[in-house]
Structure formats: structure tokens, C-alpha cells
């Protein structure tokens, strides 16, 4: 065995406290780099899990149904309107799935018996920022997924899709939506017992999805007033409505509601997620 290098001398307390800011920045970047590496290495799993669901959704609802005359949303112009509306919903759905799959699910292992998260918690940065980094990398996954899904949603439908992109809205809403879903993933991953996280899909994600204004616009729920009010607790509703505003000319919820509520949800999930994370890694 070659000789072991002798340890560094300890910098002064002042120096350490001064360098804490720099070490935090460096460690944050390195954690993100680690997550990107994991994403690159798992592309083989990432691609099917990201593409399959939106593809099937779009394929069945907007290709197969119109072709076999079992139209959803009517026929002709109404069917085209439905396809257009669904594009926004499918993108919102994909981002939310990424938030859960890339943030909440890995935590089952990281908080599990081995507690492999502990090593990252020992990186020279505040624990809260280790949690925030998770959210940011989850948001990045979501953005990547949205980019992949977009062509599917626009090309697969049998009826023409009329997109009318509002760039300022799209470029601000997409990062906000991705962040919110990353934070939602952190909340789920830290607030649920690791063993029950896989059950999330059945009991939480499914209702969020079906009541998330993916297949219909929120305003079209007007005939069922109680439901229209009830689904307002669902963050997915605001995302899908926001994407509708960003990508289509179909009717959508006012952006004056979409942005503030999404920012509010983001703040809430960030707070719930960070405090949940701290509870898990510190005692």
C-alpha cells in the first residue's frame, strides 16, 4: 500500500465560516452534477417511463377514438378542440409524474435501511439546500420530460392540433410548473413513510390525475359546481390551465389565478418538503 497523505491542517474558525458560502455553492453544483450523471446513466429507463404514458394517452384518446368513431369531446371541430386541449394536460401530467418519479421514489431507497442520503447530507452545505437541490434536479427532469412529450402530443393525434404558443407565458410557466412538481415530489418523499411511497400512485396520484383538468378544461366543469370548486385544491389543475393559456387558444382559467396559486403551492411544498427532509436526516 502506498503511503497515506497526511491530513490538511485545520483552517481558522473565521476562515471556515467565510468559506462556508463557497463550499455551499460548490457542493450544490456537485450534487446537481451527480443527479445529471444518474439521469444520463438511467436514460434507458427514463425514456420509456417518460414517453409511454403520454404516448398511450394521446394515441388512444386522439388517434384511436376518432378513427373508430368513438369520439371524445364530439366530432370534427369539437374533436380537434379536444386534442388541442389534451396537449396541455398531457404536458402537465408528465411534469407531475417526473416530480414524483425523480424525487419521491428515489427517497424510498435513500431514506431506507441503509440511509445512503446521509453521505450527501454531510456535504459541506446547509441541509435545507440538499433538499432544494433535489427539487431543482426534479424540476430539470420535468422540463426534459416536457420537451420529449411535446412532439408526441402535437404529432400523434389524428385530428389537427391548433397550437398558438404564447412564449412569455410558456417560458415562465414551464419552469414554475417543474419546480412546483419537484417540491411536490419532495413533500411526498419526505412526509410519507418510505414503505408507503410506492402506494402513492394508487391513492394520491390517481385522483390528482383524473381530477386535474387534463382531459377537460376547468371552466367546462361549470355544470357540476361542487366538483368545480373541489378540484381547486389540486395543483395539477392550475398547471394544466396554465399550459392551455401558454399553448392554445382554448378557454382557460385566468392567469391571475394560475400564477399566484402555483407560486403559493410551490412555497407550501418547499416548506413542507424541507421540514420533512430535516426531520428525516437530523434527529
Amino acid at each position: 500500500m502506498t503511503t497515506i497523505t497526511s491530513p490538511a491542517t485545520i483552517p481558522s474558525v473565521k476562515e471556515l465560516e467565510r468559506s462556508a458560502r463557497k463550499s455551499t455553492r460548490t457542493a450544490f453544483r456537485a450534487l446537481f452534477l451527480r443527479d445529471l450523471t444518474v439521469l444520463r446513466k438511467s436514460l434507458k429507463e427514463f425514456l420509456p417511463r417518460t414517453l409511454l404514458q403520454p404516448f398511450l394517452l394521446v394515441f388512444i384518446f386522439t388517434y384511436v377514438f376518432p378513427k373508430i368513431g368513438q369520439g371524445v369531446g364530439g366530432s370534427g371541430a369539437a374533436a380537434a378542440e379536444f386534442s388541442t386541449r389534451l396537449v396541455a394536460g398531457v404536458i402537465g401530467l408528465s411534469i407531475m409524474f417526473q416530480g414524483i418519479q425523480s424525487v419521491a421514489l428515489p427517497m424510498v431507497q435513500e431514506f431506507g435501511y441503509t440511509r445512503e442520503i446521509e453521505d450527501r447530507v454531510l456535504a459541506p452545505m446547509p441541509v435545507a439546500l440538499v433538499a432544494i437541490e433535489k427539487v431543482i434536479s426534479g424540476a430539470f427532469n420535468g422540463l426534459f420530460a416536457a420537451l420529449l412529450v411535446f412532439p408526441i402530443a402535437a404529432i400523434v393525434p389524428a385530428t389537427p392540433v391548433h397550437l398558438d404558443i404564447n412564449w412569455p407565458v410558456l417560458l415562465t410557466l414551464a419552469p414554475l410548473a417543474c419546480y412546483m412538481c419537484g417540491a411536490l415530489g419532495l413533500t411526498f418523499g419526505t412526509r410519507f413513510d418510505p414503505r408507503t411511497v410506492p402506494m402513492l400512485f394508487g391513492i394520491v396520484v390517481l385522483p390528482l390525475t383524473f381530477l386535474g383538468a387534463i382531459y377537460y378544461s376547468w371552466s367546462s366543469l361549470a355544470p357540476i359546481k361542487w366538483l368545480q370548486v373541489f378540484v381547486l385544491v389540486n395543483p395539477l389543475v392550475y398547471m394544466c390551465e396554465g399550459f392551455r393559456a401558454a399553448l392554445t387558444t382554448s378557454e382557460h382559467m385566468s392567469l391571475w389565478a394560475v400564477y399566484p396559486v402555483m407560486i403559493g403551492f410551490s412555497a407550501l411544498f418547499t416548506w413542507l418538503g424541507i421540514s420533512g427532509f430535516k426531520k428525516r436526516v437530523l434527529s
Binding site: I10, P11, S12, V13, L16, E17, S19, A20, S23, T24, R34, T37, V38, K41, S42, P106, Q109, Y113, T114, R115, E116, I117, E118, D119, R120, L122, A123, P124, M125, P126, V127
Partner: peptide
């Protein structure tokens, strides 16, 4: 540790320590 109050300045303290925990905390994704 190293003169740093671990409660008041955990980030500074973490710069000067290395830890081998009881369980295997190696990163399984890497």
C-alpha cells in the same frame, strides 16, 4: 470540531470532518 461550534455553524464544521457511518451509505446509483 476544529474549533467550530457544530450547532451554530454546521456547514463550516462539515468542511473539516470525514465520516464512516455504521451502515453502508455508498451511493447505489453510482
Amino acid at each position: 470540531v476544529g474549533g467550530v461550534d457544530v450547532v451554530a455553524h454546521p456547514t463550516a464544521a462539515k468542511q473539516v470532518i470525514g465520516v464512516v457511518p455504521q451502515t453502508n451509505t455508498l451511493d447505489r446509483a453510482l
